[in-house]
């Protein structure tokens, strides 16, 4: 699905990580953890081609990301659902319109009506569908972002601290939605610094836990 092969990236001449490799196999569930500032968000952005690797290769669905033009990147992103910590909505559009946005930009508006109702119900946002994003609570925003990420039925779902702004109960609800999606065959990568939410899911999903620290990506296990 997505493959980073000996990838290096840094800011202002300082390497954030170098020669880092990561493979998101189809149907896999992976957590990416590590301290704040370790580069988790940067790594995720490399995965959905929002950034380009300074060295090494990034392959999206078998294609070398460095050879993709802007349209090519856009088309790849339609196969990747992204949930940001700060959600990022278009504030003058309703929740329903924001969630349907990936279908709208893909010219598949006719599919939106059916999918949207089902999806709003799945994330429990039916009554809020006509409201504007600034009127939603943190948890509602996260659920709306998740609904938007999955409305195109993407192959991969990448979530950056999806539980960062919500309480424990809501975080469990959001994670269970992601587990449900993984059971439907979707590849899931979640970046989080909260080990408790990883521990809480250990019995529900066969997840690999990756730890990014000091520019190195390692597989964590017993320490969790």
């Amino acid at each position: 699905m997505i493959e980073l092969d000996n990838v290096s990236y840094g800011h202002n001449g300082t390497a954030l990580f170098s020669q880092l490799s990561l493979t998101l196999a189809p149907g896999s569930f992976q957590f990416l953890t590590g301290p704040s500032g370790a580069g988790k968000t940067t790594l995720l952005r490399l995965c959905y081609a929002d950034l380009r690797a300074q060295k090494g290769k990034t392959r999206l669905f078998g294609q070398d990301a460095s050879t993709l033009d802007r349209d090519g990147v856009a088309m790849s992103r339609r196969r990747i659902g992204v949930v940001h910590q700060d959600c990022q909505f278009i504030d003058h559009l309703s929740v329903a319109e924001n969630i349907a946005l990936p279908l709208t930009v893909a010219g598949r508006v006719s599919e939106a009506a059916g999918n949207l109702k089902e999806l709003l119900s799945w994330v429990g946002l039916g009554p809020q569908s006509g409201r504007l994003p600034p009127e939603l609570s943190g948890g509602e925003r996260q659920r709306a972002a998740l609904a938007r990420a999955v409305i195109m039925s993407p192959d991969v779902i990448i979530a950056d601290e999806p539980t960062g702004n919500v309480d424990w109960e809501m975080s469990q609800r959001l994670l269970s939605l992601l587990v449900e999606l993984n059971r439907m065959g979707k590849t899931v990568l979640i970046a989080t610094h909260d080990l408790n939410i990883i521990r809480s899911l250990k019995s529900d999903v066969d997840a690999r836990v990756l730890r990014l620290k000091d520019g190195q990506l390692t597989t964590a296990g017993s320490v969790l």
Partner: peptide, 16 residues
Amino acid sequence: AQVVRVLRLVGARDVY
């Protein structure tokens, strides 16, 4: 800029 960023993230092509 925020609108443009969101559109790019959800797969909008430049022409759209």
